[in-house]
Amino acid sequence: MAPIPKPKPSTIAAIDKHYVDEARDWDSLGISVSLAGAECARALFYEFRWASKPEPATGKRQRLFERGQDDEEKMLRDLRAIGVEVWGEQERARAVHGFVRGKLDGIALGLLEAPKTIHVVECKSLNTKGFKAVIKDGVKKAKPLHHAQIQIYMHVLGYDRGYYYIKCADTQEYHSERVEYDVEFCLRLLANLERIIFTDVPPPKISEDPEFYLCRFCKHNSVCHNGLLPRVTCRTCIHFQPERGGDCHVSCARWAKPLSIDEQRAACPAMLFNPAFVPYEQVDVDEEAETITYRKPDGSIWIDGATREEAA
């Protein structure tokens, strides 16, 4: 009897395709609170300036995201089940003129460790290794990104206690840690983020080695280390301006107008790369023609503004 042929496309492939089709391709308006404590300032700069394409959706990635949401809802239900009052789920938190952005997991009152104290709740699902590291070393050392996240939420919302509430995805164990608000840490962190947002020059590389552990899997590796030109968007343009005093407002200095999210993604015909993004030697500027001329490492000349083909 002939073997049953493997179906093409397979059921699993069709399920994965469904997740990919349902996924939304998006760029963050600012810097996510979940990334705010990143060790590499240059990566945050590239993230804010949309230097690289968003990571492509996959079935696995989307299911992991959904599992995180499901775990969060279950963890908050379990708090309510023992009489803890929980509110503020998905409440927006904004800092640095709206460019540092996040959504709260929740706010809790009635935790048994301190029943009269309001806590900012941050829920996370971790693998066994990460879970044990938090138990051993605490969130600040074991998960500095999570520590920065809960600190910013406390700072923005005006509370002085956080509740870091984690679940081991492998064993279903729970663990929690009360976190004290650190005003000095928050002010330093937010000042650093403000410098990143309002500068036109990428911060120094965290390493010159593209295989450094923080660089190897960074989505900006090719732009940062391998001489790839960034995406063509308003955010990589010399005319891009973040604005102070609003909620993530940005404008174009060339046209003296605010920019919508769609306009930023599309860029206009007058787009010129911010020279700090271009890995070539700048040799000339023609203000009247609105072009910038560069010499590549092989000696050839490229005129930015004359064509967009190379940067597409």
Rank of each mutant, 00 (worst) to 15 (best):
E72G: 11
E66N: 08
H175V: 08
R235S: 06
A43G: 07
P269M: 05
K17L: 10
G30M: 06
G59P: 10
G305E: 12
P5H: 09
P7Y: 12
P210A: 07
K296G: 15
Y165T: 03
G227E: 06
P203H: 09
E173Y: 15
A256L: 00
T293Q: 13
K103V: 09
L29E: 14
R195P: 04
V232T: 11
N192M: 10
I12Y: 14
R80H: 07
T236M: 00
T236L: 00
C234A: 10
A148V: 10
R77V: 10
A108F: 04
P269V: 11
G68M: 15
G37R: 04
P269E: 14
A36T: 12
P204K: 10
Y294V: 11
R244G: 07
A2I: 06
E263N: 02
K53D: 03
A13Q: 13
R178D: 05
T171H: 02
E85Q: 04
E85N: 13
R24P: 08
D105A: 05
A256K: 09
L229K: 03
R195S: 15
W255T: 00
S34K: 06
R80T: 04
A95S: 14
C218R: 07
A148C: 12
N127F: 07
A267K: 06
T199V: 09
L145W: 14
R188I: 10
E211S: 09
H249Y: 04
P5A: 14
P115H: 01
Y159H: 09
A14G: 08
Y165E: 01
Y19M: 04
S125Q: 15
I150N: 02
P56G: 08
R49A: 08
F198R: 02
F240Y: 05
Q282H: 13
V285M: 09
D200G: 14
Q69K: 14
F99P: 04
G246P: 06
A41G: 03
V33Q: 07
T199A: 06
N221K: 01
K167I: 15
G246I: 03
K6Q: 14
A253C: 04
R92W: 00
Q264W: 05
K143Q: 11
V84T: 05
K124L: 07
C234M: 12
K60T: 08
L29C: 00
W50K: 13
P9Y: 11
P279H: 09
R49I: 09
E39Q: 13
I196A: 11
G83M: 03
R178T: 13
D78C: 05
I31R: 02
K17E: 15
E72N: 12
E287R: 13
K136M: 03
W26A: 15
P210D: 01
L64R: 05
E184Q: 07
L104K: 02
D182P: 03
V183W: 05
T233C: 10
A276T: 10
H119F: 05
Y181A: 11
S10Y: 13
F212N: 12
K132Q: 07
L29I: 01
A289K: 04
Q149W: 03
E91F: 01
Y19V: 06
I238N: 07
T58G: 04
L35H: 10
D304T: 11
K140W: 14
V223A: 07
L79W: 06
F45T: 01
L112D: 11
